[in-house]
């Protein structure tokens, strides 16, 4: 589903990704761990098409097609979703208006008619329930004044509304209390199927107790330096990155 070959990127003349390779097949869950500043969020941004980053070499293929020339919106419409490490606060745009616009833009790109207002509301209520979120959320300004945990839940709420083929979760577990963590994990597990895939960026193996990864990768200085199974996360938690990174 996702093939990344020799990906090299730079931002503000700083090289960040330095020849990264990654293959994600349908139905797989990949965890990416690694020290601060190693390039995890950069990888997520580059896959989603953030134009602040320049791709200087390599290729990203999604569903068999190179997506390097795709705009961020086209990637989202193709089924890529990024749960932001730092969701952006947008005063004046309500959560419901945002979701409605997003759902309809994606539907339009697939030749589908606009979703009916009551249908959308029903779907939103259902997902909110699943994530133990109050429906007042819908009328609030997007992420504006949300607590750290609320922002992360809101990302998962959007993910469950958009039903992506590939979801990248960038530290969605950071700042979550234990209950919220379970709720988020539950949201992921609900969406999981043989045709959907996840890339989960995290610093803690805690989340991986609830979402079992098929692969764990260690990203260091812009490259994947080690790949293993779920047990690698436990090992890292015990010993840190020192033994792996050089």
């Amino acid at each position: 589903m996702l093939e990344i070959k020799n990906l090299q990127s730079s931002i503000n003349e700083k090289n960040v990704l330095k020849g990264l390779n990654l293959n994600v097949n349908p139905g797989e869950i990949h965890a990416i761990m690694g020290p601060n500043g190693s390039g995890k969020s950069t990888l997520a941004s580059v896959i989603s098409g953030n134009e602040d980053h320049e791709v200087i070499n390599g290729d990203i293929r999604f569903m068999g097609e190179s997506i390097l020339d795709y705009s961020p919106e086209d990637r989202a419409r193709a089924g890529i979703f990024l749960s932001f490490q730092y969701p952006v606060e947008i005063p004046g745009v309500s959560v419901s208006n945002f979701i409605k616009t997003s759902v309809n833009e994606i539907r339009k790109s697939r030749g589908l008619p606009q979703i009916k207002a009551n249908e959308l509301l029903k779907a939103m209520r259902e997902k909110l329930d699943l994530l133990s979120m109050k429906s007042e959320f819908l009328s609030r300004s997007l992420n504006d004044g949300f607590s750290g945990g609320e922002k992360k839940r809101n990302e998962i709420f959007q993910m469950s509304m958009l039903n992506p083929t590939l979801a990248i979760l960038d530290e969605t577990d950071s700042g979550l209390d234990i209950d919220a963590l379970k709720i988020v994990a539950n949201g992921v597990n609900k969406l999981k199927s043989s045709s959907n895939s996840f890339i989960i960026i995290t610093h803690y193996q805690r989340l991986l107790n609830y979402i079992k990864p098929d692969f764990v990768h260690v990203l260091s200085d812009g490259e994947i330096v080690k790949t293993g199974g779920a047990e690698l996360a436990l090992l890292l938690e015990e010993n840190g990155y020192d033994n792996i990174v050089d």
Binding site: G49, S71, E73, R77, I90, P91, E105
Partner: peptide, 24 residues
């Protein structure tokens, strides 16, 4: 970028942000 990453076109995303700017 946040809006575009949710499938919203650049034109519409700008419109949303500008409308929100004078929304209060």
């Amino acid at each position: 970028f946040y809006l575009r990453a949710r499938g919203i076109s650049e034109v519409l995303a700008k419109k949303l942000l500008l409308t929100a700017f004078v929304g209060d």
